[in-house]
Nucleic acid binder design. Structure first.
Length: 886
DNA sequence: TGAATCACG
DNA sequence: ACGTACGTGATTCAC
């Protein structure tokens, strides 16, 4: 059974445009009409399951309807540019869907659809017409249903002849007469002045057609009779204009609208460009089958040369001399374990590809030495990961000079999609197949056959080459060139060197700790079970909730989306009610240590090096901070003694060496003092006064001697709040005080620190004006939601505007210190090694004879990383393991 | 795969 | 009136 769905493209695009809130992708392209249209398409595909599908568009400005009535569609509002720019995109999207689209010079979409419905009628095929235009109702028949949009595009209402009869008391064709009498302002069809829908319907119910009404004007009364008689001609013409022409010369094209479904990868690609993330997820497009070969088209804009044993070294050497960029394919999340698939070199009009075996074999030798040559600059994509992957295969990557992934991060650190395929799409560079389409993902991962792989790598290298100049310009335009070339690019090399070194972890210390934990955990479990009177999975918030709040009837403090909340904050409030609560808190603490830090860390120790090699991510955090994975070494316990003991397992990799750790003291508040210029705060730091005590003095209006521990604690919370972008609610929650009291604290704080108040007001205004905020080194974060009408979104953006320059500048500073530190160690020929960064702390391993040097050198370098209006201070400690370096 | 929880700065 | 503190990553459970 055939089922045709015929869509009035212009009508639906208009509806979608006005119904959807404004929506743009990161390139600033408007996408709301396309989005709304797409939603409609998906709904139709699902609900109608069409075998044939067509979207018809109006073509040309002049149609046959203008002959004899030039004013047709005159006086219409010009299409807003935000919509008209979406038509080409919409047409591309339809292509990606694989849906036919017709437009024919001189005809409107209605006429095309009218013709097809006539054909459907003749063939006895079921058809659905989708439009926002009531005129279409004239096409309804036993075969043809008209689906009119309601409420924008979110709902459609189907009309068959019976429904039309019910609603208007008319046959479908009489809709034309209705229009003829009442006209249509939007199309500038006059009709008869003074005749609206009600009058027109009454007339038609009595006389049946325009012609009959006109022939029976005698039975009309007074003014109405006069009007109808004087506008006879208008009525006739209006009827003609409203009549859909059903003989458009497309008879032979009716079979071209067969619909065979969409290709997931193609559609995913298209949605990625449009940044329709929710739709990608909804359609599960990410799970598209790896179609491999057909996912990667050939590209004739360059000559693809696959290097193999028969390629002469001269050809290769010449190619390397002219290489502008290199794409190195290392797949896998963990760079240290990434699988090297090969690389592509872009040189002028040619792209050379070496698969892994070629690269590692005799023929790859020139390329391997080129990769290692520090004098041969390399531009590429995610060279940090490439460097690590290559290193584990015995190839040292040197001379990296530009990385489009890193640049993309600086240009927009909040963009979560960092794939080359996405990036290319964003800059309008011909499509690069997504890795998922080529390789598949998860269990379906498969390396395609060499030709396909080569085309894919070549395509990426070619894409990188085209991205580079665009990003250079944008960095320059944003004043971020120094940030990129003097800080982030050199840092990426420093990070890779730290990661390659790794940090030694003593497994025996962990195992010992693990045994102890295991015994304690077992004890807690049995105690908890006996208090509960049953056995259950304590790790399951669901089961735990049932025990606490149903079986034991403890009061419900907080709920989550899915049920009862059982987090530590809730449990602490429940402690007085039942002894079990304390046990659960302890159990939680211990099982966290066991699973994440003992077992988790043990799994990450490499057998060949006896070390853990974390992978610092330089392009993740929106503020400019680093992040650390596999394992995360930035969240090793310290606050509680039990957990802190984990740090005893982190030891120097050479006998007789020491661990040395140096951390910035109050770097974020110092940064705040600097950027806000607050005199009082600056003075406190210049005089090295305890900042929380100073804050307590000013907030509570007391002398230093009168500041007790509790006042200092509260002041400290206020300082935290300030850094996070203060709100009375947040502070009250943190301190467990009334919101009013929190508000009073904040007010008193701002009274005392006027400069800080000025900064907070200012930065939010700035964000609203520019759409972004910056750090001291011009790192940028866009905050589009600062203008949101939704209170929550807007407030969040405002707090982010306050916090990001502070957290981000602190990140800038320690990054500067790291680059400098790396250089100083090298210059001085020191053997000490920089191993870890934990946001405001650097960890080294140090030979004994360098201990004294490092104890002064490290803080010196950190403190002089940048000159602020307040001094920076770094404290240094050392010991035989990380625990002792406190 | 997402939610809940908790480790860090 | 609205309802949250800023930034991360790993583990576990349950759908």
């Amino acid at each position: 059974m055939e089922k045709w769905v015929l869509i009035d493209g212009n009508s639906i695009a208009y509806r979608a445009f006005f119904a959807m809130p404004p929506l743009t992708n990161s390139a600033g392209m408007h996408t709301n009409a396309v989005f709304g249209f797409t939603q409609m398409l998906l709904k139709l595909l699902e609900e109608e399951k069409p075998t044939h599908m067509l979207v018809a568009f109006d073509a040309g400005k002049v149609t046959f309807r203008h002959e004899g009535y030039e004013e047709y569609k005159g006086g219409r509002q010009k299409t807003p540019p935000e919509l008209s720019e979406q038509f080409p995109v919409l047409k591309e999207t339809l292509k990606a869907f694989g849906i036919a689209q017709f437009e024919l010079e001189g005809y409107e979409a209605d006429d095309i659809i009218g013709t097809l419905t006539r054909i459907a009628d003749e063939r006895g095929v079921q058809a659905v017409v989708v439009s926002g235009d009531k005129d279409m109702l004239q096409l309804a028949s036993d075969n043809v249903t008209i689906a009119l949009t309601r409420k924008g595009v979110s709902e459609i209402e189907p009309y068959n002849p019976e429904a039309i009869q019910e609603k208007y008391g008319l046959k479908p064709l009489q809709i034309i007469d209705l229009k003829g009498l009442m006209g249509d302002t939007s199309d500038n069809i006059p009709g008869i002045p003074g005749v609206g829908e009600k009058t027109a319907l009454k007339m038609l119910h009595e006389f049946g057609s325009v012609e009959n009404v006109l022939a029976n004007t005698d039975s009309l009364k007074g003014k109405m009779k006069e009007k109808v008689e004087t506008h006879k001609e208008d009525a006739i013409m209006s009827k003609k204009l409203a009549t859909i022409f059903r003989e458009v010369p497309i008879e032979n094209k009716a079979d071209e609208i067969a619909y065979g479904g969409y290709d997931k990868a193609t559609l995913a690609e298209s949605f990625r460009k449009l940044e329709f993330k929710s739709l990608i997820e909804r359609l599960d497009l990410n799970a598209s089958d790896a179609s491999g070969a057909d996912a990667v088209p050939a590209d004739s804009s360059y000559e693809l040369i696959i290097v193999d044993e028969s390629t002469s070294p001269e050809t290769l050497t010449e190619a390397l001399a002219g290489t502008e960029c290199v794409y190195i394919e290392a797949v896998g999340e963990n760079a240290h374990q990434a699988q090297l698939l090969g690389l592509a070199l872009s040189a002028g009009e040619r792209v050379f590809v070496l698969t892994y075996d070629t690269l590692m074999g005799a023929a790859g030798e020139p390329v391997r030495s080129w990769l290692t040559d520090p004098e041969a600059p390399k531009q590429g994509y995610d060279l940090h990961k490439a460097e690590l992957a290559l290193a584990w295969h015995g190839i040292e990557l040197r001379g990296t000079s530009f990385d489009v992934m890193l640049a993309a991060y600086l240009l927009d650190p909040t963009e979560s999609d960092q794939t080359l395929s996405f990036l290319a799409g964003k800059y309008g560079i011909p499509s690069i197949a997504s890795d998922e389409a080529v390789y598949g993902k998860g269990a379906k991962f498969k390396v395609p056959e060499p030709d396909t792989l080569a085309r894919h790598l070549a395509q990426k290298a070619a894409g990188v080459k085209r991205l580079i100049p665009l990003q250079y310009d944008e960095l320059e335009k944003n004043g971020m060139s120094n940030l990129y070339f003097d800080l982030e690019q050199p840092l990426s090399v420093v990070l890779a060197s730290m990661e390659k070194k790794g940090i030694k972890v003593n497994p025996e210390v962990l195992q010992e700790l693990g045994g102890e934990l295991e015994r304690n955990i077992a004890q807690y479990m049995s105690d908890i079970y006996s208090h509960a009177g049953m056995e259950f999975n304590i790790n399951s918030p669901k089961q735990l909730g049932e025990v606490l709040f149903e079986k034991l009837q403890l009061p419900v403090i907080k709920k989550t989306k899915t049920g009862y909340s059982t987090d530590a904050e809730v449990l602490e409030k429940l402690e007085p009610y039942h002894e079990i609560v304390r046990l659960i808190l302890h159990f939680r603490q211990l099982s966290k240590l066991q699973s994440t830090y003992v077992e988790g860390l043990l799994k990450e120790i490499r057998q060949d090096t006896g070390k853990v090699h974390t992978y610092y991510r330089q392009t993740i955090a929106a503020t400019g901070r680093l992040s650390s994975q596999f394992p995360n070494l930035q969240n090793i316990p310290i606050r509680l003694e039990e957990g802190r003991r984990i740090r005893k397992a982190f030891v120097p990799s050479e006998p007789g060496w020491y661990m040395l750790a140096a951390d910035y003291s109050q770097i974020e508040l110092r940064v705040l003092a600097h950027i806000s210029g607050d005199e009082k705060m600056k003075e406190a730091f210049v005089n090295d006064i305890d900042i929380h005590t100073k804050t307590a003095m000013d907030v509570f209006g007391v002398q230093q001697e009168q500041v007790d521990a509790n006042m200092r604690r509260q002041a400290k919370a206020v300082n935290f709040g300030i850094v996070y972008g203060i709100s009375d609610f947040g502070l009250s929650n943190n301190l467990g005080i009334a919101r009013k009291d929190a508000a009073r604290f904040i007010e008193q704080y701002f009274e005392a620190f006027q400069g800080v108040r000025g900064y907070m007001d200012n930065i939010v205004m700035q964000a609203r004006r520019d759409g972004y905020v910056t750090t001291l080194l011009e790192r940028r974060r866009y905050l589009p939601e600062i203008k949101a009408s939704n209170f929550n979104l807007r407030s969040f953006a405002e707090r982010t505007a306050m916090n990001t320059p502070i957290q981000g500048t602190a990140a800038d500073i320690i990054k500067l210190a790291m680059v400098k530190m790396d250089k100083v160690l090298e210059e001085r020929g020191l053997r000490s090694r920089m191993l870890l960064q934990v946001h405001d702390e650097l960890v080294f391993e140090v030979p004994e004879d360098e201990l004294e040097t490092m104890k002064t050198l490290v803080p010196e370098v950190m403190e002089s990383a940048i000159q602020l209006d307040v001094p920076l201070r770094a404290d240094v400690n050392f010991g035989v393991n990380w625990y002792e370096a406190k």
